[in-house]
Computed example of a mutant assay.
Amino acid sequence: MNGVRIHHPRIIGFFTRALTHEYTAVQQYRTQSSLCTLWGMADWAEYFRHESREELDHAGILSQQLLLMGIAPTGAQLRPPRPGRDLREMLTHDQDLEFSAVQLYSEAQNFSERMRDIPSAEVFARLRADEEGHMRSLAEMLERFH
């Protein structure tokens, strides 16, 4: 069998959904960075640029996994960015986005483990941990607004 692994279609679907999610996050963070630049908030613009680069790194990891599976990576239908009318609203939208990522990666990890696809489960676990870290940071930032 030449070492070729057969991947469960649902796991492939999780990777594809995750890639779309990460590209959506890149788009949202870049939009927010641009808004902050327009508002004269250079530090926040850089913060959002940094976040977009992290999400782009995640997209790279997912793209590589899909390529290893013999699937051409594609970020299907991206959701429109939710920039927000002010900084607090931006961070709230980002928290929602990160929460949905954690849910997706948790579900994907659990399914991969049930299917005994440990390499995929490890990728999803790593990405979930990153997104949980983003959620904690966002929660701390939002606490400052209360």
Rank of each mutant, 00 (worst) to 15 (best):
S100W: 03
D96E: 15
D117F: 07
R136Y: 13
R136D: 11
S106H: 12
L138T: 06
E140H: 07
S137R: 07
E131D: 11
E131Q: 15
E89Y: 03
A139M: 08
D94S: 01
A129E: 15
F111S: 02
N110Q: 15
S120E: 04
R126T: 13
M141R: 13
D117T: 01
I118D: 02
R114L: 14
I118R: 08
M90Y: 00
L127N: 09
S137G: 09
G133C: 02
R116H: 13
D86V: 00
H134P: 02
L127F: 07
R85I: 02
A121Q: 01
S112R: 10
H134L: 11
G133H: 13
S106A: 13
Q103Y: 04
I118F: 13
A139T: 14
Y105L: 10
D117M: 07
L97P: 01
A129N: 13
G133P: 05
I118V: 12
D117A: 12
F111M: 05
Q109M: 15
S112G: 09
E122T: 10
V123C: 12
D96S: 14
M115G: 02
I118C: 01
V102I: 15
S106Q: 15
E122Y: 03
E140W: 04
D86K: 00
E140C: 04
V102R: 06
M115N: 13
R128W: 01
L138Y: 05
H93R: 01
E107V: 10
V123Y: 04
L87W: 03
L138F: 05
L97I: 07
E140K: 14
M135S: 12
E107C: 12
S106T: 15
L91G: 00
P119H: 09
E131N: 06
G84Q: 03
E131M: 06
F111C: 08
R114I: 02
L104C: 11
M90C: 11
R88D: 01
A121T: 05
S137N: 10
M135W: 11
L87C: 04
T92N: 07
D130Y: 07
M115V: 13
D130R: 14
D86M: 00
L87P: 00
Q95S: 05
E113A: 11
Y105D: 06
P119D: 06
L104T: 09
E98Q: 12
M90Q: 14
A139S: 12
M135E: 10
I118W: 08
M115E: 15
Y105Q: 09
E107K: 12
M141P: 01
L87I: 07
D96Y: 05
L97S: 09
N110V: 08
R116S: 14
P119Q: 13
M135C: 12
D94P: 01
L97T: 10
G133F: 08
E132T: 08
L138K: 02
L97Q: 09
S120A: 15
F111Q: 05
Q95E: 03
